[in-house]
Amino acid sequence: MKRTIIAGAAGAVLAFGSAAVMAAAPDWSKVPAKDVTVFQPGVSPVEWIMKGTEHGGARGLKKGETCADCHHSETADMGKKMASGQKIEPTPVAGKAASIPVKVQAAHDGENLYVRFTWAQPKASGAPKMDDKNPVKIAFMLESGGKVEMADQAGCWATCHGDSRTMPGAAETKLKYVKGGSLAEGKFYDLHQWRSGEKKAFDGYVADKRVMEGGKALTGAEGKLDGGNWTVVFTRKFAGSEGDVKLEAGKVYNFGFAIHDDNAAGRFHQVSLGYKLGIDTKADIVATKQ
């Protein structure tokens, strides 16, 4: 794929994909936005989420409720507790944004899905850089059919385990994974990520382990910092290859995203709860045709 860096007085733009693909982007002024606040999750792997003695919401989850049912309006407050070290974060990063309000939009043209994220750049913490190559990374995941256990309730938390890297005492070689994950059985998350410093976008998946490349659905990713505000747009085909979730009009997909702000790595990101993305059908975020 062609990668082009476009620079101007308004800010820095990274385009990944062909000019024809990027030119097909929707008129975003006509697309409704969903307000989602991503927050620091601390050490809250899925095992902690489901441990009723530590997380009171475990009972609700076992009854079929979702994390967003209980916590959508209080994620900023939750982030403050983790960022301060008050709760489930043994090594907080002083000055790092506890949460980030993000506007999420989606649209399609019948062949391609477009997902747009916009947010204000938080103040830098001044802490040592965990990822010195990338001031910002943003990723979103899709899951189809609820084949991954808890994907329809807890978003990407089904990939977050206590033995994954950057968790206390975990091996640095242990990547994110899905319990019982299998591409052949359709038990996986489709993963798309954009990195600001490396000037790259990645199309991968999370099954028995996280794989950052190999997908064929992502055809474009463009990021821009303008006046202290980020805009990142992903373009992906409805159909791809192994590790790509096939999209269809009238269907709903499990959706979650995360921002690695302030040169963060591992669990020190800001993450969303789990939401639903619908293609021409009712959901938390609806991609309608333009």
Rank of each mutant, 00 (worst) to 15 (best):
Q105L: 08
G215A: 00
W230D: 12
S84Q: 09
A201F: 03
E213R: 10
W28T: 06
Q270L: 15
C160D: 12
T118Q: 13
A287F: 01
F255H: 10
V136L: 15
G215M: 00
M167T: 11
E185M: 06
E222D: 09
R165F: 04
G181S: 08
R116W: 03
R3I: 09
K224M: 12
N229K: 14
R165N: 08
Y177V: 06
K216G: 00
P135D: 15
A151R: 07
K200N: 06
V271F: 01
K80H: 13
P128S: 06
T53E: 15
D208Q: 14
S241I: 00
L273H: 07
F257T: 10
A120I: 11
A20V: 03
P168I: 05
K133D: 15
G278D: 02
G214L: 08
N263W: 12
G110L: 13
V46K: 06
K276H: 13
S18F: 02
G204P: 11
S196L: 05
Q86K: 08
D284G: 04
K96H: 14
G220P: 07
I285S: 14
D280T: 02
R210Y: 11
F117V: 11
G52P: 01
T219N: 05
A184I: 03
V232Q: 10
W157R: 13
F16G: 01
Q153E: 13
Q193F: 00
F188E: 06
Q121C: 09
T91A: 10
T53V: 14
F257W: 07
E242V: 12
Q270H: 11
P122M: 01
P32K: 01
A249V: 01
G220V: 01
S84T: 13
H71Y: 09
P92F: 10
C160H: 04
L273F: 11
A265W: 08
E47N: 05
K237E: 01
Q153K: 14
D262M: 00
G240Y: 00
I138S: 04
D280N: 14
V115I: 06
I6Y: 08
M78K: 15
V93N: 05
G146H: 05
P90C: 01
T4V: 14
A33C: 04
A15P: 00
T37H: 10
G52N: 09
V211K: 13
K96N: 14
F238Q: 07
A58F: 13
G155N: 06
D261R: 04
K216H: 02
L247S: 03
A10R: 10
G243T: 10
C160Y: 04
E74N: 14
K251C: 02
T53I: 12
S196I: 00
I6L: 10
M22H: 15
P122E: 03
V104Q: 12
S125F: 03
V104R: 03
I259S: 07
E47K: 02
G85D: 13
V252K: 06
M82R: 15
T159W: 07
V46G: 07
D163G: 03
K80V: 07
K224Q: 11
V36G: 12
D284S: 07
T159S: 14
A68T: 08
V232S: 11
G181V: 08
K289R: 11
E47I: 00
I279Y: 04
A94Q: 12
